[in-house]
Amino acid sequence: MDTYIILRKPEEPRPRTREFTTRTFGLTRGISASPQLTVERVPSHAIVGLKKDPQVLAVTRTMPTKLIHPFASTQASTSEAWGIPAVNADTSPYTGDGVTVAVLDTGIDATHPAFTGVTLEQKDFTGEGLNDTDGHGTHCAGTIFGRDVNGTRIGVARGVQKALIGKVIGDSGGSSEMIFKALQWAMNSGANIISMSLGFDFPGLVNRLVKAGYPVELATSNALESYRGNLRMLDAIMHTFSAQSAFGDSPVVIAAAGNESRRDVSDDFKIAASLPAAADNVISVAAAGKQGSGYGIAAFSNIYPRVSAPGVDVLSAWPGGTLKSLDGTSMACPHVAGVAALWWDYALKTNAVSASALTTAQLTATASAQDFSNEFDSTDYGFGLVTSPR
Score class of each variant (00 low, 15 high):
residue 189 S to E: 15
residue 242 S to T: 08
residue 232 R to D: 15
residue 184 Q to P: 05
residue 231 L to T: 06
residue 222 N to I: 07
residue 203 P to R: 03
residue 243 A to E: 14
residue 215 P to C: 12
residue 247 F to A: 11
residue 226 S to E: 10
residue 231 L to I: 06
residue 215 P to H: 10
residue 235 D to I: 04
residue 172 S to H: 12
residue 244 Q to M: 13
residue 173 G to P: 07
residue 178 M to G: 02
residue 229 G to M: 02
residue 198 L to F: 11
residue 253 V to R: 04
residue 204 G to L: 02
residue 198 L to V: 06
residue 216 V to D: 13
residue 171 D to W: 07
residue 206 V to P: 00
residue 230 N to Y: 09
residue 182 A to Q: 02
residue 220 T to M: 03
residue 243 A to K: 07
residue 175 S to D: 10
residue 181 K to Y: 09
residue 194 I to Q: 05
residue 228 R to F: 14
residue 228 R to Y: 14
residue 193 I to D: 05
residue 225 E to R: 11
residue 237 I to G: 04
residue 255 A to Q: 07
residue 236 A to Q: 07
residue 187 M to G: 04
residue 180 F to H: 06
residue 248 G to R: 09
residue 225 E to H: 12
residue 212 A to E: 15
residue 242 S to N: 09
residue 203 P to Y: 05
residue 181 K to W: 05
residue 186 A to Y: 00
residue 196 M to L: 14
residue 193 I to T: 03
residue 184 Q to Y: 15
residue 224 L to C: 11
residue 241 F to H: 06
residue 174 G to K: 05
residue 221 S to M: 08
residue 228 R to L: 14
residue 244 Q to A: 09
residue 217 E to W: 04
residue 183 L to Q: 01
residue 172 S to Y: 13
residue 234 L to E: 00
residue 228 R to P: 03
residue 192 N to D: 15
residue 252 V to E: 11
residue 186 A to L: 11
residue 196 M to F: 06
residue 177 E to G: 00
residue 251 P to R: 13
residue 193 I to L: 10
residue 254 I to R: 07
residue 179 I to N: 00
residue 190 G to A: 08
residue 245 S to P: 03
residue 173 G to D: 12
residue 204 G to Q: 04
residue 189 S to M: 13
residue 190 G to L: 06
residue 183 L to W: 01
residue 246 A to Y: 08
residue 252 V to D: 09
residue 200 F to E: 05
residue 240 T to C: 15
residue 172 S to G: 12
residue 248 G to T: 09
residue 228 R to W: 12
residue 230 N to R: 07
residue 243 A to V: 04
residue 184 Q to C: 12
residue 225 E to K: 08
residue 177 E to C: 06
residue 242 S to Y: 11
residue 198 L to G: 02
residue 216 V to Q: 15
residue 202 F to E: 04
residue 213 G to S: 02
residue 204 G to N: 04
residue 211 K to C: 08
residue 238 M to H: 03
residue 242 S to G: 11
residue 251 P to S: 14
residue 212 A to M: 15
residue 239 H to I: 10
residue 231 L to C: 05
residue 201 D to S: 15
residue 233 M to D: 01
residue 251 P to I: 07
residue 190 G to I: 06
residue 211 K to P: 01
residue 179 I to V: 13
residue 222 N to K: 08
residue 211 K to T: 08
residue 254 I to L: 09
residue 175 S to E: 13
residue 209 L to A: 02
residue 235 D to Y: 03
residue 195 S to E: 06
residue 188 N to I: 03
residue 179 I to W: 04
residue 214 Y to Q: 09
residue 253 V to S: 05
residue 242 S to K: 11
residue 221 S to D: 07
residue 244 Q to W: 14
residue 228 R to A: 13
residue 177 E to I: 10
residue 254 I to T: 10
residue 198 L to I: 14
residue 182 A to N: 01
residue 233 M to T: 03
residue 198 L to W: 06
residue 201 D to Y: 10
